[in-house]
């Protein structure tokens, strides 16, 4: 289950962060998302020489915490997407698929002429779309 998704801007500032848990651990998730930015920085600054991740937006598993797995995605405009999930067995394809759809939603949200680039995303439509994508995570390939 996805517990948190986040969009992080150029100055590593949160543009959108939403958690999907019943438990009140949103603050912990904020910490996890914030810490994962270190890994994103490291991945971006020292790309593996022969890795397949070169020039790819999907950054893969960033780091496992005690109960969560954190995945990252970097758009061409250097906006970071972070996904925190509690699933122990996550298929890469699912995550990639999720990020692809999430990216599309993000692009639609920032294409709004009333959105100022670099500011938080407050669009309700975007929030709804994200929660739909989150709910369907892991189902698309199964079904």
């Amino acid at each position: 289950m996805i517990v948190c998704v986040a969009v992080v801007g150029h100055q590593n500032n949160p543009l959108y962060i939403q958690s999907f848990t019943e438990a009140d651990d949103a603050l912990k998730l904020h910490h996890i998302v914030h810490c994962s930015l270190d890994v994103v920085d490291e991945r971006v600054n020292n790309p593996k020489k022969s890795g397949p991740t070169l020039n790819e937006t999907f950054l893969g598993l960033l780091y496992p915490t005690e109960n969560y797995k954190v995945y990252g995605y970097l758009t061409n405009t250097k906006v970071k997407f972070i996904l925190v999930t509690t699933d122990l067995d996550v298929r890469d394809a699912d995550v990639r698929n999720f990020f692809r759809r999430f990216h599309a939603a993000y692009v639609d949200a920032v294409s709004n002429p009333f959105h100022v680039p670099g500011k938080k995303i407050t669009s309700r439509t975007f929030a709804e779309r994200v929660s739909t994508i989150v709910k369907s995570f892991g189902l698309s390939t199964a079904g």
Binding site: I17, Q18, D24, L27, K120, T122, A127
Partner: peptide
């Protein structure tokens, strides 16, 4: 308490 932040009721805030 806008749309972006939930009504945080952290258990360990």
């Amino acid at each position: 308490t806008g749309t972006d932040t939930q009504s945080f009721r952290f258990k360990d805030c």
